[in-house]
Nucleic acid binder design. Structure first.
Lengths: 120, 120
DNA sequence: CGGGACGGTATAGATTTTATACCAGTATCT
DNA sequence: AGATACTGGTATAAAATCTATACCGTCCCG
């Protein structure tokens, strides 16, 4: 019982989905919201190096896709919380694995690069 | 015993790694080489919509990072085979999960988008 | 009144991706 | 012999995306 979608097909909707979840900052936001909701400035501080614009745009796209919820509490200073939805939480499993792979294979990659550099 | 790397730090080497494995076409190539080596034109035909340039550059970067091997067999017409290395195969597990998530959650995402569109 | 926190926008420049064409070497067809 | 096709790519320019930097309005605190 495979499903009908195949990312290898240029026009398959799953490719759009893969493109979205593979976007530059999505993996960071999903991992950041892992176990707690976060506010805009918290996210910006936590994901070092992201600009407000990139954060805003990625959050908007993820909200549109139903991966996160945006909750505005009327108060001042303004209080806006972002949290993973159930759908977003289901994405956490694979994306956490990707993050963990990156963090645990740095030495392997550096070794491969050094070896490739030495070869020439 | 966590490791010393953290992708949330702007200058952590793991971020460079994450950036590389999150690059546009890496997930496609890793999944395509899943169970068999493939030649350039096979890959290009299998991953519908990729251009020669994107394929060449992604393959070169992945080879540099030690994720794939490139084997040129002296024959004509030219015969060049790309295959996952052990390191690349270890990346297959998380990236296959990402691909599968994309393929299996298309209806959820489409539903969320339709609902967001309806709301305005 | 001055200054800061919050949740962002605006604008322009840099980088990356895509589209389109083209190439050299060999083999095969006519 | 000449035309054609397949392989594994390059070259070039245009289009899309990402980053850097500055700035905003509202409110509160002192």
């Amino acid at each position: 019982m495979g499903n009908a979608y195949n990312v290898m097909a240029a026009t398959c909707p799953s490719r759009t989905v893969l493109h979205r979840i593979g976007a530059r900052w999505t993996v960071f936001i999903v991992n950041a919201l892992d176990n707690r909701p976060m506010r805009f400035t918290q996210l910006k501080a936590h994901i070092r190096g992201i600009t407000s614009k990139a954060l805003t745009e990625t959050l908007r796209a993820m909200e549109y896709d139903g991966l996160i919820s945006r909750t505005e509490t009327p108060a001042n200073p303004p209080h806006v919380e972002y949290a993973l939805t159930d759908l977003g939480r289901s994405l956490l499993t694979p994306l956490r694995a990707v993050r963990e792979w990156a963090e645990s294979h740095v030495p392997d990659i550096e070794r491969a690069r050094a070896q490739a550099d030495a070869q020439r």
